[in-house]
């Protein structure tokens, strides 16, 4: 078997329709993950009695096990839960009606949440205590101080890690093929299955992923320049 350069292009074009799926998987997991992560981080930082323990258990468990295991666990346990619930309350629908991608959304969000909570936590901890105190001393309430003073700075501090998380989730979204979601990776398999030119197909997929990753890095760098304007040194 020889390398067929023209098929790389064919595969590339064939893969394009799958890009939105990959991006949506990434976007949903990162967004939901950020919300979960912020909640988790705040619960741990403010040591809210029961929640803090649950939160650290959650983070430890997720960070100690592979993303694939989370996906498989959700994929096999969530239907049982849904069926039990719908039988209990007579909802008239069952797990078969749930689209496959929903399992990927739930599982990836749970995974992202744990990693995001560490990102948010390190971001919040990077902010000097004095900032909070200064905000309180000019009469802001704690939520105001967090929202207006601490959070914007924390986001700036956490941005590099946040970017890493986004890229991690982009790469992690390839796992969706295990629950038969047709993302880029699965599409590469499908494109190649007609003529067995797997190498070419995966090469095309790799190029797309590489491009997406570089694009995310560029965007993040631009945002970082903009967002950390306040902290530049110098006089001008």
């Amino acid at each position: 078997m020889k390398l067929d350069p023209s098929f790389i292009w064919t595969a590339f074009v064939g893969l394009l329709p799958a890009i939105p799926t990959t991006l949506i998987l990434t976007l949903v997991s990162v967004t939901c993950g950020f919300v979960i992560g912020t909640g988790t981080a705040l619960a741990r930082m403010y040591r809210i009695p029961v929640l803090a323990q649950i939160a650290s258990g959650y983070v430890t468990f997720i960070r100690g096990t592979p993303m694939l295991v989370h996906l498989l666990l959700i994929y096999f346990s969530l239907p049982l839960l849904i069926d039990a619930l719908s039988a209990q309350f007579d909802l008239g629908w069952n797990s078969a009606k749930v689209p496959m991608i929903a399992f990927a959304f739930v599982s990836f969000s749970i995974t992202a949440g744990a990693y995001m909570s560490e990102v948010v936590r390190s971001g919040l901890m990077a902010i000097d205590r004095g900032q909070m105190e200064a905000a309180l001393s000019v009469g802001m309430t704690v939520p105001q101080a967090i929202r207006r003073i601490v959070f914007p700075q924390a986001v700036a501090a956490a941005l590099p890690n946040l970017t890493n998380s986004v890229i991690g989730m982009l790469h992690g979204s390839t796992l969706a093929f295990t629950v038969s979601v047709v993302d880029l990776n699965a599409k590469a398999q499908i494109v190649a299955s007609t003529n067995w030119k797997y190498f070419e197909a995966y090469l095309a997929a790799a190029i797309i992923f590489w491009g997406l990753t570089i694009a995310i890095e560029r965007i993040a760098a631009a945002i970082e320049r903009r967002i950390s304007l306040y902290s530049r040194g110098g006089v001008a």
Binding site: H171, G172, F199
Partner: peptide, 22 residues
């Protein structure tokens, strides 16, 4: 460095599995 950090490891696995022999 950019390639291996810019592509998912799953894709790399398939790439090497199918490509390295050739």
């Amino acid at each position: 460095t950019s390639f291996f950090r810019g592509t998912p490891i799953l894709i790399q696995l398939f790439l090497f599995y199918y490509g390295l022999p050739e």
